[in-house]
Write a protein that binds this DNA or RNA. Structure first.
Lengths: 225, 225, 225, 225
DNA sequence: AATGAATGAGACTTCATTCAT
DNA sequence: TATGAATGAAGTCTCATTCAT
């Protein structure tokens, strides 16, 4: 999980470091709302500034360009997702329980932050090279966390490294279906809760037969809910 | 699989219907290249016209707006995906083989059309309401095809309707990981082929334990490859 | 005097070459008026377009940037100055008469195009590197013309190459005092005509004693006018 | 040489008069560097403040506007030029020697302060009306100094008042060729020194035959150097 | 049916100046 | 007196769309 310090410094004229952090948080939060509503390109910096509760000129004291803004939004979202995940599994000591909690939390987080996640998937093309690099690093961090949880779950048991890695990728990715197919799922299913439960089961079975978990029964899921 | 007729008519002042179709195909193909390269908003209609091999003025004889163009591109891509899928499973009579072929083809199609699929996921927000509606319909069609394949695979066997639906959704969605996490996967794995194989296995195991397939052994996958 | 072809091509989307020339002339003329009145930086492209008799959007079909505009203005002015000079001395065969006519014309041209020349001296810092290079080339052309006239005036006579060159530079430069010190001169003298006459005499005497002209008496100037 | 007191008061809310002078000198010196490097319009007040070694807010205690700054720079430069000229001729009693020394110094000053002089010629359009008036006054002072030197050189001799005035103007102006045609001269001549010598000779000869100096031979210049 | 020039609304960004501390 | 954050007006340039030929 390691370092969370921004791997990319954005220059500014402002001296007060606390103020910088505070304003940039304002900006990220305001911008996210606007980006979610209209998309990166249709959002004007004026709207963003307004949503952030400051004037355009003021905002440009904390940001060099619109591209900086989108980068801050990505940083903001991924930071929050990481922190929430940490909180969701902290205190749980049993490895399998930790994994299970992480999976469950991931589903809930995707559901809760659906807008933000949709935004991230839709707007990755708007990031400049450097920002993209940083953001991909964040993603990798997140996936490695699942790898680690899987490893701890397996304990002493033998496992295939490739499968473990791929499984981690899938675990992180699959819940995103809730966001990316939101309309489709809403059309075809009654509640998101049942979809989440179904995904949970599909995932666990996939893992299980994948021989990644020692005691499938340990994560037993009722065959019919 | 039902109707493939455009559920949305786009007006034009041109009379020659064959010409309309030809030009619109040109436009869709040219536009797709440009959209893939630069994204919808960064692509100018001038570039699109050039890529389509006609002048801007001419293009506006077949299109009312830039939004029409993106709609045509979506139609073009989804049409091709459907047709290729049809061809991939036609002639296969054994239901389980059909399902398996469809899954495999889906993986390969996602890989082959990675650019186009990335474009579709990133640009859905650029569609106007009507177009979005049509496109969602296409998606539903595609998923229903998987439902049908699953049903045929189950034959007389009992199954849970909810699980079947959800499974269809997941089957269609999971392979898209190849596109949406392309950079991440390329970074973490050697070849796309091994990733595809891994996803295939994960999917089959998920389905299997999900009790959706009568004879899991029928789709048995070597525990270690 | 040689080549007068633009040493710098400015790209445009417009196909009609005649139209390009015409519009660019319009732009140069309009822009010159605005630049003269407000200076390069204070002139807005909107004002320039208006003065050129077209819309801003239209103007940008013939120009890529404001810097292109200033370059066109320089080209326009220097082109006109060259052409007028050619006409002023064409048909005069006696070398000393040609030189004298050139000097006289230069004075009159500086007076006539005072605004334009003031603009050129004030705005050279606004030219980009390439344009500056081209413009310096134009200046050199102009000076070399004086060199040539001096050489022909000297005929077979010996002369010092360095002095001749420097004299040419001074001949071209000195009249510009009319522009660069316009306010000062207007304040201190009655008419520009008398100032021009005075400069002419100062110049001729400078040249004369400079041993650049064979028969000083040939260009004898009444000691008192 | 008369008054050198600023003919234009610039208001400030600061009380300490010594501090005002010191800060304004700082500002003028810092600003000159920036103006020379980037031109008046491209220089930001922030850069100027930085170059002046103070903050923007602080600078506005001594200046009401950016226009005030450019005025101070003009004052600073012309003040220095005047002082240097005074020093260059002080102690020389022979009138012709004084004139000669002034001419020589002027050439050297133009060369030495080439950047500043270029700036002054390029930026005169940026001065507001009042400042321009003051600056023109400074220029007149400078020219009148040459008039005076010429008069003293002529002693009792008769002279034409008009010619004398014009000569003074030319004497002050001609050396500026070193600055205004710097690139051109550098391209065409080996050293600035030889150019300065040449200009000196041209000037003297111009004056001489102009009948402004009693004994031309007194300023005799070897026909070939 | 095709061409390509014209249009003008609107986007991002900069910067001189002010003001609370 | 000094600081530095806030402001908003204004500037350059792009581009989807139209229209005369």
């Amino acid at each position: 999980m390691s370092s969370s310090k921004p791997a990319k410094k954005v220059k500014t004229r402002i001296k007060d470091h606390e103020l910088i952090d505070q304003r940039r948080r304002q900006i990220a939060e305001g911008a996210m709302k606007v980006f979610v509503a209209k998309g990166y390109h249709m959002a004007t910096v004026r709207e963003i500034a307004e949503a952030a509760g400051m004037t355009m000129g003021s905002m440009y004291n904390y940001v060099r360009s619109k591209e900086d803004i989108i980068f801050f939004v990505y940083e903001h979202i991924t930071h929050n997702l990481r922190e929430e995940m940490k909180r969701a599994i902290e205190g749980i000591t049993d490895p399998k329980e930790r994994l299970r909690a992480a999976l469950r939390h991931n589903l809930e987080a995707v559901e809760k932050h659906s807008d933000a996640i949709m935004f991230m998937y839709q707007s990755s093309g708007c990031l400049d090279r450097d920002s993209m690099h940083v953001v991909l690093g964040r993603e990798t961090e997140y996936i490695k966390m699942f790898e680690e949880l899987l490893r701890q779950s397996l304990g002493e048991q033998d496992y295939d490294e490739f499968r473990l890695r791929l499984a981690a990728d899938i675990l992180a990715y699959l819940p995103v279906i809730i966001t990316l197919r939101r309309w489709s799922l809403n059309r075809r299913f009654k509640s998101t809760e049942e979809v989440m439960e179904g995904i949970m089961q599909f995932t666990m079975h996939g893992l299980d037969f994948f021989s990644l978990l020692a005691q499938p029964s340990g994560v037993a899921i009722p065959e019919k809910e």
